[in-house]
């Protein structure tokens, strides 16, 4: 495994970016974007996570095998969520995102 030395400048730049994005998280929460609320909040969160994974966890400088491992981890999480939603989005008594659990009348 080759050790990649990341310069302090990059670490501080990423740290700064994460701080800015944290402020952004707070700032967008002050406004109501309607249906885009969740999308925007998640987009900011995903950007922050990507920065941490790519730079702080060194995935950007890792071998292809490591990248495949990281990607498959997220892919499996996506499988869990997407296929579970195939139930939740179509269940009687729930209405899409934020729906209430199935009502007791179904059973």
């Amino acid at each position: 495994m080759s050790e990649h030395i990341v310069s302090k400048t990059i670490y501080f730049l990423i740290f700064g970016a994460l701080m800015v994005l944290t402020v952004l998280t707070y700032w967008v929460a002050l406004y109501d974007f309607g249906a885009l609320n969740v999308v925007i909040a998640l987009a900011v969160a995903v950007t922050k996570a990507l920065l941490v994974v790519l730079f702080f966890m060194h995935v950007r400088y890792s071998t292809r095998l490591t990248k495949i491992v990281v990607i498959s981890g997220f892919f499996w999480l996506a499988l869990l969520i997407v296929l579970t939603l195939s139930d939740y989005f179509t269940r009687p008594g729930t209405s899409g995102v934020g729906g209430v659990p199935a009502s007791r009348s179904t059973r």
Partner: peptide, 15 residues
């Protein structure tokens, strides 16, 4: 394929 354990559990018909 895990949802095939849940056909009668209250999972949606579509699921």
């Amino acid at each position: 394929v895990w949802g095939h354990h849940m056909f009668t559990s209250g999972q949606s018909i579509y699921g």
